[in-house]
Design a protein around this nucleic acid. Structure first.
Lengths: 207, 207
DNA sequence: AGTATAAGCTAATAGGCATTAGCTGTCAAG
DNA sequence: CTTGACAGCTAATGCCTATTAGCTTATACT
């Protein structure tokens, strides 16, 4: 990996642990293994590094959501998967989303950084909301609405169902960001949550 | 209000907007209407101000939870309230908790500050988890378990029910911290969420 | 009345910060 | 072989920062 992206990588790590203002350029340079002034051969300012992270991560996000069609258009394919497999597939999807969010090196550090910086300006706030609230909710909402149209799931308001499905996942995610040692607990709770969610909303199963 | 607590108040506001490191003592002094060196007549360092906020807010929190018995022992009284009134009472409790968390001047600023500072050290992380995850969940869990023992609610795992009840509230809370203009949306979603929650878990009602 | 304490001020200090200037070596293209 | 771009370095600059020293004023106690 070249120096320019090593700088980005090191900065992301540091920013996600301490926040932009608490990290000095000397610290970043140290992590990369060069001296502070050398950073300016690659970025014109500290802020420029931050912006570099932002745009790099947005590109990654676009790619990822395009691949999962998570941004909007049609998650029909995903719904198709579930039309046969039911509960296990739902659990698989939840756990998969969770562990991806939690363990992907970039996604995880970037989320922490956004968490720390979200109140600094409206743009960062909007970005956080999009990536960790609105997009996941609308994605889940579309899938669940599809499943209820198919007659597999009860006919409830899809956005509320999505909230019921995603909010616990979100809460447990922020918990694990803060206290990674509680991940096993969180995974266990997540699985129970999805199981119960399925039991509640699935059609044709008595309870 | 005396100077010492005005300093605490101003600092809390600034820390909750920009984070500890991005705020200078001069800025704090300015907000209070004094000069920076005068701060040191009241606190021995900038860190001391931060610690002051921490202990002050922890005292407030203890008081509040003691009043609501939200910390542990017995939320029997609260459960008693619901034994007659059902859905509206549940909505009232949810909206009440939500608007308290969102609008109480101190609670709100302190939560934002903790959000920003949570990754700086384990103590702050633990405090956040306690106040915004573990305590609310165990409180809700106790109430809901009581309601299901009473036969009013379905006999499901109380901690999962609590997660289903509280997680959406938490997600919407963090959303409104970030984008206060979306509060009306959030309140509407919250009410629908609780209504559906009630419909799902309430016993003796067909669906 | 007199004195001590508290709470403000200005001026100063010392360290840290991001950034710039200007030098050196490396390596590929002409 | 030379030249020029690149990527590193050291040293320096100037600003910003937390904190201290030491002065002044007012209030409260004896």
């Amino acid at each position: 990996m070249n120096t320019k992206s090593r700088i980005l990588d090191a900065s992301l790590t540091l920013f996600s642990e301490k926040g932009y203002h608490s990290v000095s350029v000397a610290e970043i340079a140290d992590a990369v293994g060069i001296k502070a002034p050398s950073l300016y051969k690659h970025y014109k300012s500290k802020r420029d590094i931050f912006d570099g992270i932002l745009s790099e991560m947005q590109i990654r996000y676009e790619k990822q959501t395009a691949a999962l069609q998570m941004n909007g258009s049609n998650p029909a394919a995903d719904a198709g998967i579930f039309s046969s497999v039911s509960e296990d597939a739902l659990i698989h999807m939840g756990i998969g989303l969770f562990t991806y969010f939690l363990h992907d090196d970039y996604v995880c550090r970037f989320r922490k950084m956004l968490t720390i910086e979200q109140f600094h300006d409206a743009e960062l706030a909007a970005l956080y909301t999009k990536q960790y609230t609105d997009d996941p909710l609308s994605y889940q909402s579309q899938i669940l609405s599809m499943l209820s149209v198919c007659g597999l799931f009860r006919d409830a308001k899809p956005d509320i169902m999505a909230l019921h499905f995603y909010a616990p996942l979100y809460l447990l995610l922020t918990l694990c960001d803060r206290e990674p040692e509680r991940e096993p607990d969180a995974l266990c709770l997540l699985e129970q949550h999805i199981r119960q969610f399925n039991q509640i909303y699935k059609k044709g199963i008595s309870q």
